[in-house]
Amino acid sequence: MTHDTADGNHVTIALTINGLAVSAHAGMTVVEAAWHGGVPRVTGVGCMEGVCGSCRIMLKRGKQVSVGLACQTFVEDGAEIIFLPPAPAPRHHYELSEFKDGWDIHARFQDIFPEAARCRHCHGCNVSCPKGIAVEEGVKQASAGRFRDAGETFFECVMCELCDGACPEFIAPAHVGLFSRRVTAHFHLRPPNLIHRLEELRQDKTGTPQKDHDE
């Protein structure tokens, strides 16, 4: 749980971040190492716990190249790390409020995300996902109109959009996942307890204070 040696000294790790040599301590994340090494212009950092998806990096170990999140990646000797620029603006446009009803979701999906049906099964999205999501399977589910399942597959998506960059067909899998989740809530989430309370409020029944149990 600590990364100190027995005599209390830190184990030193040598790596490069954005081309600069950095000397870090074992157990540091790449974000901590970048600060520790004074690497300038690291602006893509947010939550530091793996949920905001901002700190996108490319990591090179020898000949092997991978992508990930800097706050979830620990320093390694000899690693070469580049902070990636933010993802480009979305190419797929839709507004849920313009959907008439749930019957034409599938048709709308194919209009909005025509590339999804052209998946080449290259697994680039799966490999690039820092959360271990079965991205390709999720895209397949959405293409088959199984939006609830697709949304569930993308449940842990943090919108880092690394899969979008990895896709040779420009499918934008992260946005396919979010579309799937959103239409599922928008058209199918109709909770009785909430609807009942909304109706009471509409009739202004609870506007009058009720007798409270302990006051």
Binding site: G46, Q210, D212
Partner: peptide
């Protein structure tokens, strides 16, 4: 920072709303 970089994205527990039958806005 980036759109969405916030404390909101880290909130885990939930959101309060008085929707249960035994609950009320007053409570």
């Amino acid at each position: 920072l980036r759109l969405g970089d916030s404390n909101t994205v880290m909130a885990e527990g939930g959101i309060q709303a008085a929707i249960e039958p035994e609950d009320s806005i007053q409570r």
